[in-house]
Amino acid sequence: MTALVLAEHDGAKLSAATNAIVTAAAKLGGPVHVLVCGPQAVADQAAKIAGVEKVLVAADAAVANQLAENVAPLVAGLMGAYDAFLAPATTTGKNVAPRVAALLDVMQLSEVIGVEGPKTFTRPIYAGNAIATVESSDPKLVLTVRATAFDKAGEGGSAAVEAVGGAADAGLSSFVGLEASKSERPELTSAGTVVSGGRALKDADTFAQVIAPLADKLGAAIGASRAAVDAGYIGNDHQVGQTGKIVAPSLYVAVGISGAIQHLAGMKDSKVIVAINKDPDAPIFQVADVGLVGDLFTVVPELVAKL
């Protein structure tokens, strides 16, 4: 059973999510190869992940922006030599993997959080309100894997890097642009500490004025509830939840977040959860390790001063 892992990167830097997917792939019991659709420099980083036997690098322009229409046929073409394809359950992985699965005529397993056997996996359903144990009967496996559910494979490997050609432009789609939010803070899904704000933050300016100092103090990434994103307090890339990002930091501070099911689905695997909310009955307190009922506009500045 040889597994192929799709590397997650931004065109220059490999994402640590890739290391977690390598751990999941290694649990299948066979060699692990990594496919980088991007530059050699990213492939060199992937080659250092412990446990990776080989790195394939496709440097063609057609796949540089991870367009699924061009990446999927490349992967499907490589799968003759592999038994499993694993992609991180990021927006890139979720875009590409089902297209690969359909080309191979296999059913994908989404958001895998546990490897129970060579063909048996656990995955959350109903926004994490239930966990399904699922066995595949297909000849090849296609999985998207939740990075926060697996330890990140360490460094120290020295895999061979091999170029793969033949990635062509399918002529169906083209990349127009990316409006990336610039931030000096840690990346949300890999941050050790996350401070998130909710609807109670009133507006975009207030959100920034209250949440940013606490995030700065803790060296944290900034997250938000769906309500806060819908209301325009902060961009969509900060949304934590079932349909946003799944995070599992060492410390998660929820400020003015009531704790809707779909938000909890995105953060309940955090190690320590702190909730600050003026409503003592807010569901967030049911999952919090430490809860403080109070007005966030006085509590948060006081907390910043005392930390």
């Binding site: 397993l109 309100n129 966990i131 699922v134 066995e135 309940k268 430490v290 809860g291 403080l292």
Partner: peptide
């Protein structure tokens, strides 16, 4: 179907935490 659901279970429940009274 290509997949067989062997079982569906409740997710692990987080232990109840503590409430504090001040910053």
């Amino acid at each position: 179907p290509r997949l067989k659901v062997l079982k569906v279970s409740e997710p692990p429940v987080r232990k109840a935490g503590v409430m504090v009274g001040s910053v």
